[in-house]
Amino acid sequence: MQVLVVLAHPTAGSLNHAIADRACTALRTAGHDVHLLDLYALGFRAAMTADERAAYHTDEPIVDPLVREHAQLVRTAEALVFVYPTWWSSMPAILKGWLERVFVPGVGFQFNEAGKVRPALTHVRRLVGISTYGSPWPYVKVINDNGRRTIMRTIRINTGTFTRTHWLGLYAIDTATADERERFLERVERRMRSL
């Protein structure tokens, strides 16, 4: 499979970087073609510009060359893997902005003649989210896990009917032990090997 891994953490050497490393290695071991996008390292700009907004409903919604490159990677991906820390019960702004700017009409979804949203990600067979949370699991469940909802609902409804989804979360990381972190990395590795 063609797998696109999208990583959104500002600090090289973070747990999220370690997770992305493990995931990529495991996916390659399993024989997949893996492409990693480290959004911070690429200097990706999160905010949709006025030009992009003006072009959004036209036939050419993409104006930035970096966004065009990423859109091409999305169009050929058979699996999407998102790796990010949950901040404010949602994805970091850089990843939210990546979705807004790259998953434009014709890439992330399409409009039919009546102007209704229809799926354009039917080539995506696996949708995976891997996230670290500062809060403990019950708090995340009671208050909100909007990052997960964005991926598992908003993106999911634009993929195919038979697309399978997987969610891997490490909760309460501020108090997690080194052992718990290592076990989580192993879980990520096992899951990615058998994707």
Partner: peptide, 25 residues
């Protein structure tokens, strides 16, 4: 956009609602 606040507003939350302003840990 994508069922939530635009990235620029999410970033305002990420960067401004920090320890000592919005909460303390």
């Amino acid at each position: 956009w994508y069922s939530a606040q635009p990235a620029i507003m999410k970033g305002w939350i990420d960067r401004v609602w920090v320890n000592g302003v919005a909460y303390e840990l």
